[in-house]
Computed example of a mutant assay.
Amino acid sequence: MTNITEGTLLALSLLGLLLIFGSQDAWASDKDSEPQKETVVLLHGLARTERSMKPLEKSLSCQGFKVINIGYPSRKFPIGELAGQVKEKLNSLDCWDAPKVHFVTHSMGGIIVRAMFAEFHPHNLGRVVMLCPPNKGSEVVDHLKDNPLFVALNGQAGRQLGTDPESAPNRLGPVDYEVGVLAGTLSVNPLFSNWLKGEDDGKVSVERAKVEGMSEFLTLPYNHTFFMNKAKVKARVTSFLRTGRFLP
């Protein structure tokens, strides 16, 4: 049997430790170097909750995005204050560390995003998809903003969504980031549609969904309330986030 000196044993022991700890360091390094997922922030509409965006959240998660589905008290504060609250919540979640932070909004959620980024936006702001946004206001609000029941149900923010030049959306400027707008053309409310000009989804006309500076616009034959749950809507949302186009 070969004689092994004390020095040789010590050297072998140290080599073993180096291999063990070196391997662990390598694993840690591999884990740290995994690419971060692009993040998608979901914002619901007026008088809704984050639950209304759950089907879309599941769909985007399955597509490999990290999804943050934010709830906010849409009926309790004016739009400017709501935008500040949402921005603070996003800052607290450290979501700006992601390579890209996209937004998908329903209805008034799109106005919240425009208000947040009216003056400046982060360098890693990705693409924004707005579903049925009242980007130029809604005639429905013009008719109902002084109705006590409407005010009780929709709060201060609801009253700010009219079509007059001083309404919240009309005081916001053009967008200077990638925005795709999907608008609905199916109404189940003939009374509201009678107040709206042209095609509409029962709450917002197709024409008033548009915003200056948008890069893509498409209509789909669905109504306002459940627009975001439709399979073709989910597919177009994913397409725009990936490519900047509403590909079929």
Results as ranks from 00 to 15, higher is better:
residue 161 L to V: 05
residue 118 A to I: 00
residue 150 F to K: 13
residue 141 V to M: 08
residue 128 V to M: 04
residue 148 P to M: 09
residue 116 M to S: 03
residue 153 L to C: 12
residue 115 A to I: 00
residue 107 S to N: 11
residue 149 L to H: 08
residue 145 K to V: 01
residue 146 D to H: 10
residue 131 L to W: 02
residue 156 Q to Y: 01
residue 156 Q to F: 03
residue 161 L to W: 01
residue 140 V to Y: 12
residue 110 G to Y: 11
residue 113 V to G: 14
residue 157 A to S: 15
residue 128 V to K: 01
residue 131 L to Q: 05
residue 122 P to D: 09
residue 128 V to F: 03
residue 113 V to N: 14
residue 123 H to R: 15
residue 151 V to A: 01
residue 135 N to R: 12
residue 109 G to W: 02
residue 118 A to V: 01
residue 128 V to G: 00
residue 112 I to T: 05
residue 123 H to V: 11
residue 143 H to F: 13
residue 158 G to F: 06
residue 128 V to A: 03
residue 134 P to T: 10
residue 159 R to L: 07
residue 124 N to P: 08
residue 150 F to Y: 15
residue 120 F to Q: 15
residue 136 K to D: 15
residue 105 T to V: 10
residue 158 G to D: 05
residue 119 E to N: 13
residue 130 M to R: 00
residue 108 M to N: 03
residue 111 I to A: 09
residue 151 V to W: 00
residue 155 G to D: 08
residue 141 V to W: 00
residue 146 D to I: 07
residue 161 L to H: 02
residue 148 P to W: 06
residue 142 D to V: 07
residue 106 H to L: 04
residue 146 D to K: 02
residue 144 L to T: 15
residue 161 L to Q: 04
residue 125 L to I: 11
residue 154 N to F: 12
residue 144 L to D: 13
residue 151 V to E: 00
residue 117 F to Q: 10
residue 158 G to A: 12
residue 152 A to G: 00
residue 157 A to I: 11
residue 133 P to N: 08
residue 116 M to H: 10
residue 160 Q to A: 08
residue 134 P to S: 09
residue 134 P to H: 13
residue 138 S to V: 13
residue 130 M to Y: 03
residue 136 K to S: 14
residue 149 L to F: 09
residue 143 H to K: 15
residue 139 E to P: 07
residue 112 I to F: 06
residue 117 F to S: 04
residue 129 V to F: 00
residue 111 I to M: 07
residue 137 G to S: 12
residue 112 I to L: 12
residue 141 V to C: 13
residue 146 D to M: 06
residue 131 L to V: 08
residue 132 C to D: 14
residue 131 L to M: 05
residue 157 A to W: 07
residue 131 L to K: 04
